[in-house]
């Protein structure tokens, strides 16, 4: 029970800046809104044929998770079923929901697209990360009006403390109305390069940084 949990790596993407473990990487403030995500994908030479099929929310999650896991390859250290993915946001999948709604607005003549509809669930982004990295552990997607450091830290710590997972990919992936924000990090039971304990207080500091 006295087990401590640590934030071992962190990737954030917002306001035209990618940062890894608190160090700024690719940045281009001239790129408008969500186009920055594609620019980052190219900048870091990520290569995944399915990327272009994803909706913007999944694209954001994908780029953040690729950079995070390149930095801290959890799948090399843990069995696939011991890695949990727990993500939260505020707008759920409203961005692509609006797109699907638009395709059915003409009630007599509509052609909804299966490749749009499939993304109208926020947890699809967990599925995309899981598929890319063969991760099979616990899955949860939560909705909060804003990032909830108290809940996220206490819930993730409780699943690690009770051995429901050995490590976790977690954070906040939000994208709606051309605004985006990814704050994705790993939690493990030993310290990593980021020497930060996984507490609400430390989490708030990192998030507001």
């Amino acid at each position: 029970m006295e087990q401590k949990n640590y934030i071992t790596s962190l990737c954030s993407i917002k306001n035209g800046i990618v940062s890894l473990d608190g160090v700024s990487g690719f940045s281009d403030k001239s790129i408008d809104g969500v186009d920055f995500i594609k620019a980052a994908y190219k900048e870091y030479q990520l290569s995944y044929p399915k990327f272009y099929k994803m909706d913007n929310l999944c694209k954001l999650a994908f780029v953040a998770s690729e950079l995070l896991l390149k930095n801290n390859p959890l799948t090399k250290k843990y069995a696939s079923q011991d890695i949990a993915i727990v993500i939260a946001n505020s707008a759920s999948s409203l961005e692509i929901d609006t797109e699907h709604q638009r395709t059915i607005s003409d009630k007599n003549n509509y052609f909804p697209s299966p490749s749009v509809f499939v993304y109208t669930l926020p947890n699809i982004l967990i599925g995309e990360i899981a598929i890319r990295n063969s991760i099979k552990g616990e899955n949860s997607f939560f909705i909060f009006d804003k990032f909830d450091a108290e809940f996220m830290s206490s819930y993730i710590n409780s699943i690690l403390d009770s051995s429901k997972a050995k490590c976790c990919i977690t954070g906040w992936i939000e994208l709606y109305e051309n605004k985006y924000e990814a704050f994705l990090y790993t939690v493990e039971q030993q310290e990593g390069t980021l020497k930060t304990e996984h507490t609400a207080q430390e989490l708030k500091k990192l998030y507001n940084h």
Partner: peptide, 16 residues
């Protein structure tokens, strides 16, 4: 690299 969703999407293309 097409999958089952793409097949459904091609059905939409034929229809639309």
């Amino acid at each position: 690299g097409l999958d089952s969703i793409d097949a459904l999407e091609l059905i939409v293309l034929l229809e639309k």
